[in-house]
Each structure stands twice: as C-alpha cells, then as structure tokens.
C-alpha cells in the first residue's frame, strides 16, 4: 500500500513540474513580449527593461524556466501591478474570504447530493424525474448566471437576502480575525447580529457556487447507485430479509460512495473556477474576484501564479481523493500490495 502511495506521490510531483512548464510556456513561448505582459500595459520602457532583466529573458530558454521555477518555489511570485502588491501577499490576504465561501458551498454540495441521489434511486417516478431535472439545470448553468438569477429573484424582487454587496453590510465592522471566517469570528465574539448578517451575505454566493458541484455529484452518485442496486450481492442481501431502505444505506450507499470519493479533485476544480466566476457577481472580496480584475487589466504575473497554484491544489486534491479511497476500500489496499 505504501509503495503504491509513494508511486502516486512521485507521479503527482512529475505532473506538477510539467504543469509549471506548461504555465511557463504559455507565458514565454507564445507570441508577444512577456516582459510587457508581466509589467503591464501602462508600464514605461524602463520598467519593461527592468522586468526583462529580472525574468532573465536574455538567458537561454531552459535557464529561464529554471529561474521561473526557483522563484516560484521560493515564494517570489512577482509583483502585481493591478493590485499594487506582491502577488503572494495579495493572494494570501484574500484567501480567507474565498475559503469561507468555498467551504460552505462544498458542504452544501455534498449533503445536497447525498439527499438528492438517495431520493432519486430509492423513489422512482416523479421525485426521480425532479432530481434528474435539477441535475440537468445545475450542470447546464454557468455559475455567474446562476448568481445573476438568484440576485434578481431573492434580492431584487423578494428582498430576502442581500445582493452584490460583499461579505458584510457597510455599517458593520469586520470582526477581529481568528479563523478568517466572518461567521465563525463573529460567533467567537458572541455577536449575533454579525453572525446573521455575514450568514445572510453568504446565502446567495454559496448557492451559486454550490450548484454545479451539487448537480455533478448528484448525477455521479445516482449513476453509481443505479449500477450498485442491480449487483447480485444486493439481491443476496435482500434475500436475507433485510428491508429495502436499510439495504440502501448499508450496502448501496457504501458501495456507491467509494468511486465518488476519487472525484474529489474534480469538485475542487469546480470550486476554484467557480469562485473566479461567482465572486465578481457578488463583489466578494476574495481571490477569484481579484483574479478577474487582474485579467481585465492584463496582469499576467497574478494570473500565472494563480493558475499554477490551482493546478498544484488540483493535483493534491486528486491525490488525497485517491488515498482516501484506498483507505476505505479494502480491495484497492490489497491489490496494490499484491502487485
């Protein structure tokens, strides 16, 4: 088992290195002047020259790549002219907002998908049809449009929850940062108004961000459950006298979850891209919104670091999904050892 994980780990490192190469190539080898791209459209000739030297653009190709990699590993991700900060500080200072959004969305997606898929595979007819429709709509809607529709309905028309106004109402002061999550930090302060205000601000963005992974997981789980339900061992369990619902929970669900865990990385990916697409809709002060601004002002240093970081995150996510899968599923454990 450990040998197997070591191999996967090695493969992941190789993939990350290759990914860094891809992100390097995209910037340096494509037509256009990288120094100009990185320094930004408003930079003067001197700044561009300085950037060119800093990037080592006079060096041979692979030396440039080595320099790029070294800088990245050291944590020197360049200067973002659109934010006016080092890329690293810019990213880390906005991470908490994104994490808070993504974590709630992640939980909603998983719990929601479990409920939907169970309903769909256990109750044929109308309810199964509704779940299927939900999955189709969820998979077909771009997250930013979902945000727009939610704002139109729940904010502009019904006025239930705030629309594009960030994490807090303007009259409130952000709580002292402990976890970086406004909901939790307010709760630690015992500030009920703060908790409910920050929670209300979370509702619509969380829904917009969660819909795609929710629908995706629902679909995946439903398909897995349908496959599992017709397996001979389910018939054997039923022949023992176990009723339909306990059979579903004990055997169908358990066997359907396993292949779902390994798509953990994919969920992570939808979260990352989702936050890029959703945060601007709600003026959410997170990493995604910053990236979108960076894109419109052609801030390549920011964009490059962001995509490389998300690639690393994505690879790690896949690795963790795999490892968890192995831990739960005895078959994978021993087959790995046998080979």
């Amino acid at each position: 088992m450990f040998r197997d994980i070591r191999q996967r780990l090695a493969a992941s490192v190789v993939t990350i290195v290759l990914a860094s190469f891809v992100s390097f190539v995209v910037l340096r080898a494509l037509p256009g002047d990288p120094a100009r791209l990185i320094a930004g459209p408003l930079a003067g000739q001197e700044t561009i020259e300085a950037t060119r030297r800093g990037l080592g653009l006079d060096e041979p190709f692979f030396a440039q790549y080595g320099l790029f990699l070294w800088d990245f590993v050291r944590g020197d991700w360049g200067y973002s002219f659109s934010v006016g900060e080092q890329v690293r500080t810019a990213l880390t200072s906005r991470l908490a907002a994104t994490f808070e959004l993504a974590l709630y969305a992640f939980l909603l997606a998983i719990v929601g998908a479990l409920v939907c898929a169970s309903v769909a595979s256990f109750r044929p007819g109308l309810r199964r049809g509704l779940v299927r429709l939900f999955a189709l709509v969820g998979l077909g809607s771009p997250p930013f449009w979902v945000g727009l529709v939610l704002i139109v309905v729940f904010s502009a028309q019904l006025g239930w929850w705030p629309g594009p106004s960030g994490r807090l109402s303007p009259q409130l002061v952000p709580p002292p940062s402990v976890t970086g999550f406004h909901t939790i930090d307010f709760a630690l302060q015992g500030d009920i108004i703060g908790v409910s205000d920050s929670a209300a601000h979370l509702v619509l963005p969380v829904l917009s961000l969660a819909l795609l992974p929710w629908a995706f997981l629902t679909r995946l789980l439903t398909a897995n459950m349908a496959d599992t339900a017709v397996q001979p061992y389910i018939l054997v369990v039923r022949s023992k006298g176990v009723a339909a619902w306990p059979t579903h929970v004990r055997h169908v669900l358990a066997n359907s979850l396993l292949p779902t865990v390994s798509s953990c990385g994919l969920i992570l990916a939808t979260m990352i891209t989702g936050s890029v697409l959703v945060e601007t809709v709600f003026n959410w002060p997170g990493v995604g919104a910053m990236l979108t601004e960076g894109i419109s002002s052609q801030d390549f240093a920011l964009v490059q670091s962001f995509i490389l970081l998300s690639a690393i995150l994505y690879v790690i996510g896949n690795l963790v999904g795999d490892a968890v899968n192995r831990m739960i599923d005895a078959r994978l454990r021993t087959s790995g050892a046998a080979q």
């Binding site: 993939t15 990350i16 290759l18 990914a19 891809v22 992100s23 995209v26 910037l27 494509l30 990916a269 939808t270 990352i272 891209t273 890029v276 697409l277 894109i295 964009v303 490059q304 962001f306 995509i307 998300s310 690639a311 994505y314 690879v315």
Partner: peptide, 12 residues
C-alpha cells in the same frame, strides 16, 4: 489535465 480546465483556457 492538471489544470482546472477553465483556468488554463483563460491563461491561453
């Protein structure tokens, strides 16, 4: 494939 699809498309 190591990149979330949309992000790499964006970068390119």
């Amino acid at each position: 494939l190591a990149f979330p699809q949309l992000l790499l498309t964006m970068a390119i």
